[in-house]
Computed example of a mutant assay.
Amino acid sequence: MAIKSFQGKRDTSQGKEDAQILVSDYMTKKLITFKAEDTLDHVIEQLITHKISGGPVVNDKNDLIGIISETDCIKHISESKYYNMPSDVNNTVGMYMATGVDTIDKNTNIFDAAFKFISSHRRRFPVVENGKLIGQISQTDVLKAAISVKGNTWNS
């Protein structure tokens, strides 16, 4: 007489992934945004006041048109303030912002987002839906998600 199995009935849920953690679960939805016509002095004040390192630039329809960062503002400082030149009214966000911005989809798995951060050396990605800015995911948001997963599924 042959032995059928010592393992008992198999759990059919083994091997199935738990619900995915998505970018939309951790992205920031209330953002400090800028317009292309804003002055860089205004941007610098906002970055310092809100303790942020950059922000998305949108038009009147909330379409993402660029990103302005501390680095972009430092370029402005090095080009004018360093040489004690007066602030030019034409020193606008539109002149210094980065265009052609990399974005990320709200339905991206948070760990795929982490890989995108590693491979791109970016600190943040705007989240866009149908061309409209709906949020932003940062490296800190990915870390928060990782801590959440550790608390729920990993052994401490």
Rank of each mutant, 00 (worst) to 15 (best):
I104W: 13
G131Y: 02
K30V: 04
V93T: 06
T99E: 10
K30N: 10
D88A: 11
A113Y: 09
V149R: 12
S80H: 11
K150W: 05
H76Q: 09
Q139F: 14
M95K: 15
V43A: 08
Y96N: 07
T140I: 12
S120F: 06
H76P: 10
G131R: 08
I65Y: 03
R123K: 12
T28E: 04
D88N: 13
I68E: 09
T33M: 03
I104E: 10
G100I: 12
K81Y: 15
K144A: 01
L47D: 02
G55F: 02
G66M: 10
N90Y: 15
Q139S: 10
Y96K: 12
S24I: 08
M97P: 10
G55D: 01
A114K: 04
D112V: 11
T140R: 13
F117W: 06
D102L: 14
S24Q: 14
D88G: 04
D88R: 14
L133C: 00
H76V: 10
N90F: 15
K106S: 07
N130M: 08
V149E: 12
R122Y: 11
L31Y: 01
L143Y: 07
G54Q: 04
K144W: 03
L40T: 07
E45F: 11
I44S: 06
I44C: 15
F34C: 04
K35S: 00
G15I: 11
I147C: 06
D63H: 11
D88I: 09
G55E: 01
G100A: 11
H121W: 02
D72P: 13
F111M: 13
I110P: 05
E129L: 08
G55N: 01
I48V: 12
L133K: 00
S53T: 11
Y82L: 13
S120E: 06
K61D: 00
L22I: 02
T108M: 08
N62A: 03
H42Y: 15
K144M: 02
G54I: 03
T39G: 15
M95S: 14
G135W: 00
H121P: 00
K51S: 14
G131Q: 01
M95L: 13
M97D: 08
N62Y: 04
D141A: 06
Q136M: 14
Y26N: 00
T49I: 02
T99D: 10
T39V: 08
